[in-house]
Design a protein around this nucleic acid. Structure first.
Lengths: 224, 224
DNA sequence: CCAAAAGTGTTATGTTTACACCCATGT
DNA sequence: ACATGGGTGTAAACATAACACTTTTGG
């Protein structure tokens, strides 16, 4: 592994990114395919070893850039994976982060020095991943639930606006509950969390839906 | 420092405990006085270096026991302190934990191998601490705010029951807001978060207050 | 009998829930 | 014209906020 680089020292610290997006109402996570042993050819979450001269979050951003080309992203700390034997070589802690991106705006590199593919996977359909990444991803999805309860997440998930049916679906999916669509709409509107943009969006057929945007002047509120 | 012990390896991981209690309506934190360089004679939060063969939380518990004699405590992870130069010798991460104890039930050791004193300090009156512990403590107090919003914390803060005026004061103090005592009482009662025990408690003078206990059958609720 | 702190009740306002009907589009 | 999904309104239940009076104790 990368232990020879003098920037790494003995007890190891890794960073692991779980980058989510919404693609046609589905929540997806970004995976890369490894080009190195161990787990060569396996899908994995983008991440790697922390350098000793960088903050943990900086490290996560650097790794994300190196493996996927994503930059300018806000990362949120999820937690530490600290099982003693998660790595066979030495004690290795993993710091897990969540990032949210607009799938339209990112340009994911399919190949890098260390990867041979990169793609978005529906969180309901995740392949077997390298290391303990399936487990890590589950933790991150739990955290995503917590986050989505906060109204400000709308801004990050949909920087360009959204329709209410769209986000309604997302909230139901990630929270795992049914939400009355009429009441859901009312909550967002009466609490001034979203603003009508007077535009509409057409999907395939059906009545066009109004486009809304997040109200920047509204303080962060807990939605559920 | 303790680097010679073969259980520690190169990039360091420390654990730091912020143990809180309620003493006569005041929130206090447990500090120990150091008996070793650096910062010999200074007050500090109880903690120390993590061994490579233990989980982070286990390590925090071990350190807490060694330095204060507290055992059987639930610790809650607050976050990581990761400034690159927080320790001059080598890269040192600090994992911060919160514990809550009943001041009546703990038996704090005043002296150990590494400490020459231990005491409870009101969180409004903290001395200058060793390392970056003042900063760490501030972070932990912020987290305590988040925690106290959740109804389940009552169980841990007051395993033996409490009076409403008591916890009212605690909530006001830690959240830093005024709460109408009548509405506060009503909230806890109508939402079945607390149960009347039909006992009363006398303070010095004044009308005795009813003793309540946390309702174990109630799911965790967000109070504010 | 007074001060201090605890207990109780009411009303107005806001939030959440439950539920039924109309509207715009593509086929 | 109809099926599909989007938009709207209303009433009941519940939660919150604002506020005043009574009760029990020690001194």
């Amino acid at each position: 592994m990368e232990i020879k680089n003098p920037l790494y020292k003995n007890i190891g610290a890794h960073v692991i990114n779980t980058v989510f997006t919404i693609d046609k109402g589905e929540i997806k996570v970004l995976l890369i395919k490894r080009n190195n042993e161990p787990f060569k050819g396996k899908w994995a979450l983008p991440g790697g070893a922390m350098y000793n001269n960088e903050l943990i979050e900086e490290s996560a951003k650097r790794e994300l850039k190196e493996k996927t080309n994503i930059t300018d992203i806000d990362l949120l700390f999820v937690g530490v994976e600290d099982k003693v034997d998660r790595s066979p070589l030495l004690r290795m802690l993993a710091f897990i982060y969540i990032g949210l991106v607009d799938i339209e705006k990112v340009n994911i590199l399919k190949e890098t020095n260390k990867t041979i593919d990169a793609d978005w996977f529906s969180i309901n359909n995740i392949p077997e991943l390298a290391y303990d990444h399936n487990n890590v991803l589950l933790k991150a999805i739990e955290k995503l639930k917590d986050m989505i309860i906060s109204s400000n997440i709308l801004k990050k998930l949909y920087p360009n606006g959204f329709t209410i049916p769209e986000i309604h679906k997302v909230y139901e999916e990630i929270l795992g509950i049914e939400i009355d669509r009429r009441n859901f709409r009312k909550k967002l509107l009466t609490q001034n969390i979203i603003i009508d943009t007077n535009e509409t969006i057409n999907f395939e057929g059906k009545k066009p839906a109004k486009k809304y945007k997040f109200n920047e002047e509204q303080k962060d509120k807990r939605l559920f």
